[in-house]
């Protein structure tokens, strides 16, 4: 039993690392500019869906603030590139830590009272978005309302020299997020979060320090989103509040997670991959309105037919063998 779990775990880790290495080796060298740019967005959405689900999927506290954490990472990066000369690794760390610190502050307050559980938590994270947008718009060293040109600031560095390098960073972040999601799914950490989702009162009575787990996981989830936001600043080239803090991000991430299912750690990964690919295919229709409607209809249909999402609808025995293979979607 123990050995079987270890082997399945090793298979999962191998799958994540293998897919990331393959993607990094092949996509920037063989892919066209278009493919590399698509690949960058693809891995960014995977990181966003997996990091959202890490907290919200596992604990049941649906956050609408994931776009804020992603945006904080993007703006932290833009500001660092504009005002400093530090290596990109440092920029990445600052982007992730900024988002995580914001989540700790919000989490410490919002989780301190059971009154803010459930729907109210979602509303508060939504309110947080408006506060952060206002702050960023009014602080000159971040934005000040005019938007920030990033491309020129990064053009001389390794990270700014090609989309392929952005893809490499994005893939590493997505793979790292997948490893964190996997770690949570097989450890006490995940058990604690899922017990909170099922019945927080029971979780406490069983000795689960629910407050600590919620604050810390919210911070890790936000920090990973902040990391994913860092290369995005360079990819966009021009950063503005309206485009960065869009409500599309939490809505799409929630859709991806529901679609992929939360009963397996890789559910949101499959969901993100499906949504990104379907959206890309729908671009060929030429009408954004029509493709939005089709995407919505597909979403409703899948929820009606597969209430537990794609990952939750496969029988256990099948998923055990399938799990490493499904990560092929990583490329």
């Amino acid at each position: 039993m123990n050995a079987r779990i270890d082997r399945a775990l090793a298979g999962n880790v191998g799958g994540i690392v293998g897919c990331a290495v393959l993607a990094i080796a092949l996509v920037p060298t063989l892919g066209s500019d278009y493919v590399v740019a698509f690949g960058f967005q693809f891995v960014t959405w995977i990181a966003l869906a997996l990091s959202w689900s890490l907290f919200s999927g596992n604990s049941g506290y649906a956050s609408f603030g994931h776009g804020v954490f992603f945006g904080v990472g993007t703006y932290a990066t833009a500001a660092m590139l504009r005002h400093t000369d530090v290596p990109f690794v440092v920029v990445l760390v600052v982007a992730g830590v900024s988002a995580a610190v914001l989540a700790v502050i919000v989490g410490l307050a919002v989780f301190s009272s059971p009154r803010f559980a459930g729907d109210l938590f979602g509303l508060i994270t939504l309110a947080m978005a408006f506060i952060v947008i206002t702050v960023v718009s009014n602080l000159a060293f971040l934005d000040g309302g005019t938007g920030v040109f990033v491309r020129e600031q990064a053009v001389g560095s390794w990270i700014g020299s090609s989309t392929g390098n952005l893809f490499i960073v994005g893939t590493l972040i997505a793979a790292g997020t997948a490893l964190v999601a996997l770690a949570a799914s097989v450890s006490r950490w995940g058990a604690a979060l899922r017990s909170i989702r099922d019945d927080e009162g029971v979780a406490e009575s069983l000795g689960v320090p629910t407050y600590r787990y919620k604050v810390l996981t919210f911070a890790v989830s936000a920090g990973l989103a902040g990391l994913a936001g860092a290369p995005q600043a360079i990819f966009l080239g021009y950063v503005e509040v309206g485009a960065v803090f869009t409500l599309n991000i939490p809505l799409l991430v929630i859709m991806m997670t529901i679609l992929g299912g939360i009963t397996r750690w890789w559910g949101p990964l499959v969901g993100a991959a499906s949504v990104v690919v379907v959206r890309e295919l729908l671009l060929d229709i030429g009408s954004p309105e029509l493709s939005q409607i089709i995407l919505g209809a597909v979403f409703v249909l899948v929820i009606a037919l597969l209430p537990h999402g794609i990952s939750g609808s496969l029988p256990r025995s099948l998923t055990r063998r399938k799990a490493p293979a499904t990560e092929g979607a990583h490329r």
Partner: peptide, 25 residues
């Protein structure tokens, strides 16, 4: 009030993990 998404043994194991002697999964 069993934890509904946990199996019977996972319900009990949660108590083992987080109780007086915390232990791994």
């Amino acid at each position: 009030r069993p934890l509904p998404s946990f199996s019977v043994e996972e319900n009990v194991a949660t108590g083992c993990m987080f109780g007086r002697d915390s232990m791994g999964r």
